[in-house]
Design a protein around this nucleic acid. Sequence first.
DNA 1: GGGTTGCTTATTTTT
DNA 2: TAAGCAACCC
Length: 665
Amino acid sequence: MVDIKKELNDKQYLAAAKLKGPLLIIAGAGSGKTRMITYRIAHMLDNGIHQSNILALTFTNKAAREMEERVKSLTSKKLTNLTVSTFHAFGVQILKESITNIGYSENFSIYDQTDKMSAIKESARELNISPDVLDIYEVANLFSSIKTKRDIWNDNNISFQPLYNEYQEYLVNHNAVDFDDLIVLPVKLFVENPDILKGYQLKYQYIMVDEFQDTSLTQYNLISQLAMKNRNICVVGDDDQSIYSWRGANYQNIIKFETDFPELNEIKLEQNYRSTENILAAANSLISNNTNRKEKELWTGIGQGKSIEIFYPENESNEADFISEMIKSFHQSEKLKYHDFGVLIRTNNLSAIIENSFLAENIPYKVSGGQSFFQRKEIKDIIAYLRILNNPDDDINFLRILNMPRRGLGKATLLKIREIALEKECSLHAAATELRWNGDSPLSDKIQSSLQEFIDMIQDYREMLEDEDINKTKMIRDLIETINYWGYLVIEHQKNEKLAKWKYKNIGIFIELFEKWEKNPDNKDKDLGTYLNRITLLTRDDDEDGDNGQVNLMTIHASKGLEFEYVFLAGVENNIIPHARSIEENPDNIEEERRLFYVAITRAKQKLFMTSCKTRKIRFEIVDTGPSPFLEEIPKELISFHTPVANVKDEEALDYFEQMKSKFN
DNA sequence: GGGTTGCTTATTTTT
DNA sequence: TAAGCAACCC
Ligand SMILES: Nc1ncnc2c1ncn2[C@@H]1O[C@H](COP(=O)(O)OP(=O)(O)OP(=O)(O)O)[C@@H](O)[C@H]1O
């Protein structure tokens, strides 16, 4: 039994012990919301609630994994039927079980952002719309908003409606879903099939949602449908930490929740267990500049702590070196482990230079967030093959592999295949198969036999995939050999053999990861499609485990819910935070940028450092930058400002204080 | 008709 | 800096 009374404060205990009925917890950063949920689950299990009746939804895969691990270790149970997952992963699970009820088949493909844009381009082609008149990125965003009901057709966008319909049809025809569908389709499934909904309501009798402020309207619809019957739903969040509005997150859901579940209990958590007074005061002062907040108290018993420090490096490489130096010296002097440090950045492109500096200084680090390992081109190439084996109707991936590696099947061949596909209303793969059998083929002998070889190869591997006795890891290895991907890489990167080798090494890592999954005894569903769908949802670092002595480098978005003893916030400059693009899009976004800053500050337990460069290289130019205006919103007495540090590398001989002195003289 | 060279352009955050 | 695309060349 877990003694939750001992491990939680009174308020937390109240929330964790109340297992029935709707529960709303809105509380500030570090007030132990996630901890409460974790113990609440353990408490449920101790009280005889069956693990399979519990559903806990978190925001990131990493958060899900951590919560699950924590519950397992608290209860010392194996818990293979406990569902702790992200909304999207949960959606995939439902679709996997029930998608045939809404006109798709089980081997559906998930299209990520890139695939989605390709699919839009393809749809445009079918409607004879030239893709260059479209801003595909914009269009993709519009379609996402339409699909999730964040936007409706109006005079400005109605011209895209035919394309939208075509795109939708394209997805259905090719048995593919996009990220939005992962939430929208389950909702549709439930609306159209009350019996199926009933089944899920019976299964998931106890629901918990962490980071509720960052759920979207459709996500809310999904869980409210599930919870409607049993009404055992506990949501936890902080409106001040809502930082995903650009993806449809809407903290108005809190108000919706209050109306939909009027009998709810609201519990406030007001003690912060994470940060020092100084850090908390800075965060509170900053965020008070936002309007429309839910008022919250937040205090800490941890003590005043040390002051926040701001440094002004000359440029971004000095900034990176400075951070490295600081981390190194604290690592030695303060008995801190490397994993006690978090280095937070607003945009991914700031990471490269900091990584380089860590490498040069031999500081172990890991990067999370940003492009996933599985989004890398070389990995996506291999995945495309596997997708086709799993779902041959998947045209987007068929297009990707048709002439990769080059096998002479280029524009002209594709045109022929397209003609047949159009005529027979079938997928490209089916059309190509047709063409292959065609006696009086319009293709040259050489092309014809190349096509034949290609189609036969797919067929062979599809048979191997079906065969339960065949080890799939070996099959993938074989496949990569057969297509001679290494040869392809060598040709593609003739002038850069190192790059080719590196990419091939990544392929090796991919195979190892797959093997680990295939061999995992806890893994009940060894379907390749399941694996592929799972990995499309992962972000960088999601698949690694533990924080074994590595500095954590990540975007602020990715740091949500985490904490570090020492936090370095880099690039605290105007136009970075708040980001120029964000403000450009809509000046009101300043509030979300401020929340972002708030999230960043509140990750720190003991100490917060910020750096603001005087100049920064943006693309090719060096531009003068100014400090972030948010710094003005933090009381001066909480901060030690350090006069701009000179170039550390050039003036290593100069003691730091000497530099300061010389500045004053 | 396919491959290759040379030019352009990067979108802020991510499931 | 590198990938992605279009015009060109073989
Ligand atoms: N009652 C408690 N006693 C001791 N430590 C606690 C207690 N509650 C929370 N903590 C600790 O405080 C820290 C913050 O908790 P937690 O991450 O659960 O907060 P949170 O409200 O989810 O934060 P955020 O809003 O940033 O996601 C953790 O290290 C946690 O272990």
